[in-house]
Computed example of a mutant assay.
Amino acid sequence: MKHFHMLLAVLTLIIFVCQALPIWMGKTAKRSAMITGASHLIYTLLMLTGLWLFWQLYQVAGVQHWAIAKLVLLVVAVSATIKALRNQAVQPSQAKAGMMIAAVGYVGILYLAMAKPLLG
């Protein structure tokens, strides 16, 4: 399950980069139905596998605050991406800011996944 979760995380980052690059370059990102559907499926599977792995970790080691922080950062990154994609034509500067917020969220997730610091 861990390897599948990691694969989904890589796919999430690839989809994010494909959506963010046009916005950062000042172009309007095309929102194809295939990319939208794939991102919904990947986000859902990523959340389900992450919650499953969190449950397994909780059974062995109790509450791990870094895992909860990863979940919060994922919600922030996904919501910032959605907001940026919806407002890219009307407010390009806010779309760029939203994608930067999402990028910071994803970097934070990667840091927490590798370091697993004691936060509590």
Results as ranks from 00 to 15, higher is better:
Q19E: 14
L119Q: 02
A113M: 04
P117W: 00
H3W: 13
M6A: 07
S93N: 11
A20E: 01
H5A: 04
L71I: 11
Y43K: 14
A69F: 06
L7D: 08
I68Q: 09
V78Y: 09
I68C: 05
G37N: 07
T12H: 07
I109H: 01
F4W: 09
V17T: 10
T36P: 00
A102Y: 04
I82F: 13
V107C: 06
V72D: 01
V10E: 04
T28P: 08
T44S: 15
K30Y: 07
G62I: 05
A29D: 05
I42P: 04
L7E: 09
F54T: 08
L110H: 00
A115K: 12
K27I: 09
L118Q: 14
V76W: 00
Q59P: 05
T49K: 04
V76L: 06
I109K: 00
V90H: 11
T12L: 12
M34N: 10
G98M: 13
M100A: 15
T81H: 00
V17I: 15
K27A: 14
R31G: 11
Y43H: 15
L53G: 03
G62V: 06
T44I: 14
L41R: 06
A102L: 10
L11E: 08
V60R: 15
W66F: 15
G50L: 02
I109P: 00
T28Y: 11
L41K: 05
L7A: 11
L41P: 05
Q94K: 14
L85H: 02
V104W: 14
L21N: 05
Y111I: 08
M25F: 13
Y111V: 02
K96C: 06
L51S: 06
I101K: 00
V75H: 02
I82L: 13
L46T: 03
L57C: 10
N87W: 08
M1Y: 10
A9G: 09
F54E: 08
F54W: 12
P117L: 04
V107L: 06
L7N: 03
H5V: 03
Q91D: 14
L51G: 09
G50E: 07
F4Y: 12
L41H: 09
L13H: 10
A115T: 12
A102Q: 08
L53C: 01
S93W: 12
A29G: 00
H65T: 11
F16N: 01
G26I: 05
A103N: 10
K27F: 12
H40F: 12
G62Q: 07
S32N: 14
A95V: 07
F16H: 03
V10G: 06
V76K: 00
I23G: 02
M100S: 14
G108K: 07
P117Q: 00
K116V: 06
I82V: 15
G120M: 13
L8Q: 00
L45F: 14
V75F: 08
L11K: 03
A102W: 01
A102G: 11
M99L: 07
L73I: 02
I35S: 15
G120F: 10
Y111Q: 04
A20G: 04
L21C: 07
L11V: 11
T81R: 03
I35Q: 10
F16W: 09
V17H: 05
G50C: 03
M47T: 14
A61M: 06
H3T: 11
Q19V: 01
